[in-house]
């Protein structure tokens, strides 16, 4: 057990009957880190997070969270972590205050402590509504912020957030991530799952999950570098170009053998360069049709490449 790690997972396998949801994964999360769990629905993110919070029993493997190894019936992990599930965590028919007080009671936080703590959290969130507002009357983004407050009432060392920004407006998502960064700056470890690829750029490290396995784990910058050792160019069609002209030019690039791959990227195209000498030749020829510039891969590029790499 390394004291620098908030979470250590070794050979974790979780099966439901004959279905293997998580297949022999190992990783560790450093203290104070924002650790992202990325993957499509059904990749095993939620199952892993539930196990780390002690809501599921591992079929195989070792799980150590906040310095405590998982044991059935042992509450030490639950005392030290906060968990916000992807479902409702607040009661719609209770007021903001009633919800938070119940969350505090559940964890046996004394009245004087939780009253102080709720004030702190309201200040942290910048919550200005009346605390007697029923939760059902709040917008989704605000509900999620309050759910985060409820999950951090007991000042946990590690906070597990399972798709906290699903269904939330872009502005509210940005606000939520600002809160996550603040928590991390205050020394908390934040373990967050998402399927928004742009959000994952804000994590210190990302684990990419696919069908129960971790297929990549690193910082966003390293992942990009490792996945794309080749240079990457972005082609933008000039205005007024016909679809057939664009397609014939793309075909020309393919014929030249300069590109490893050409991926559509919105209205643009990303060219992964295989042979830079050939590319230098061909890029001059396509000039009337496209403008081009070197670019860095997005997490989307990384994700697509990694997933395809596994499939191949």
């Amino acid at each position: 057990m390394n004291p620098d790690f908030a979470v250590q997972v070794e050979g974790l396998t979780i099966q439901f009957g004959s279905f293997t949801a998580v297949d022999d994964i190992s990783f560790s999360v450093k203290k104070g880190e924002i650790f992202g769990f990325l993957g499509a629905n059904g990749a095993g993110k939620t199952t892993t997070i539930r196990t780390l919070c002690g809501l599921l029993t591992p079929t195989k493997g070792h799980v150590t969270v906040a310095g405590h190894e998982y044991k059935e019936g042992d509450l030490s992990i639950k005392k030290r972590v906060g968990y916000m599930s992807q479902k409702f965590t607040l009661y719609n028919d209770l007021s903001v205050k009633e919800n938070l007080v119940f969350a505090a009671n559940l964890r046996k936080i004394s009245k004087s402590t939780h009253e102080k703590r709720i004030k702190e959290l309201f200040a942290f969130l910048g919550f200005t509504h009346s605390d007697t507002t029923l939760v059902r009357d709040l917008p989704v983004g605000l509900k999620q912020e309050l759910a985060l407050a409820a999950a951090t009432l007991h000042n946990p060392e590690i906070i597990f957030l399972d798709e906290p920004t699903a269904g939330v407006s872009p502005a509210a998502r940005e606000r939520f991530w600002a809160l996550i960064r603040q928590l991390s700056a205050a020394g908390k470890t934040v373990f967050v799952t998402t399927h928004y690829l742009d959000e994952s750029e804000q994590c210190d490290r990302i684990a990419l999950m696919r069908t129960g396995k971790i297929i990549a784990l690193d910082s966003p910058a390293e992942l990009k570098k490792k996945t794309f050792p080749e240079s990457l160019y972005e082609l933008e069609p000039m205005s007024g170009q016909s679809q057939s002209a664009i397609l014939s030019q793309l075909e020309k690039i393919k014929q030249s053998g300069a590109a490893l791959e050409i991926q559509p990227y919105g209205m643009r195209y990303h060219v992964i360069v295989k042979d830079s000498r050939q590319w230098d030749l061909v890029k001059e020829q396509i000039k009337p049709t496209f403008s081009y510039k070197p670019t860095l891969p997005s997490m989307e590029d990384v994700f697509i490449r990694l997933v395809e790499g596994v499939d191949r």
């Binding site: 539930r50 919070c53 479902k87």
Partner: peptide, 14 residues
């Protein structure tokens, strides 16, 4: 049904 059960059992309660 609504999912709050998950939050209940994520707390250190007997």
């Amino acid at each position: 049904e609504i999912g709050t059960f998950e939050t209940l059992i994520s707390a250190p309660v007997r």
